[in-house]
Amino acid sequence: MQVPILKQRDYLIASIQAALTDADLLELRDELMKQVGKFRSRGVIIDVTVLDVMDSFAVRTLRSIAHMMKLRGADTVIVGIQPEVAFAMVQLGLTLTGVETALDLEEGLAFLDDQRLKERQVKGAPKRGE
C-alpha cells in the first residue's frame, strides 16, 4: 500500500488512502524522510481522514515522524483525525504530545503558513498587514 506524497510549495502532503499495516506506516516514514531531504521541505502534512482506527503503533509512528521531521527543519501537522478516533485514542492513553493537529488539509496548510510567518517575524522581517 503506497501513500501518495504530494509536493506543494515547500510542503509535503501525504494523504493516506486506506487502512495501513505497520509496514505501510514505516514505509511512509522512510519515504517522507527521503523526500523532505530531497525537496528541502519546511512542512509536512499527513492526512489521516480515512483512518477509522489509530492504535498505539500508528500514533507512535506518526509521533516519531514528527520528531524526525523537526530534526530536519520541517514542521509536521496531522490533519483529519475523526471525532470517534480521537476519543478512542485518548481513552487508550495516546496523545500526540509535541505534534500539531488540525481539522483538515486547509487548516493544516493555514497552520504551516502561520508558522512560516512567525519565523520570518522573529528574524526581523517586516510584519504583514500593519
Partner: peptide, 12 residues
C-alpha cells in the same frame, strides 16, 4: 479531561 484532549486532536 479526555474530551479536552480529544478536542485538541481535532485541532481545537
Amino acid at each position: 479531561v479526555l474530551t479536552v484532549a480529544a478536542a485538541r486532536l481535532l485541532g481545537a
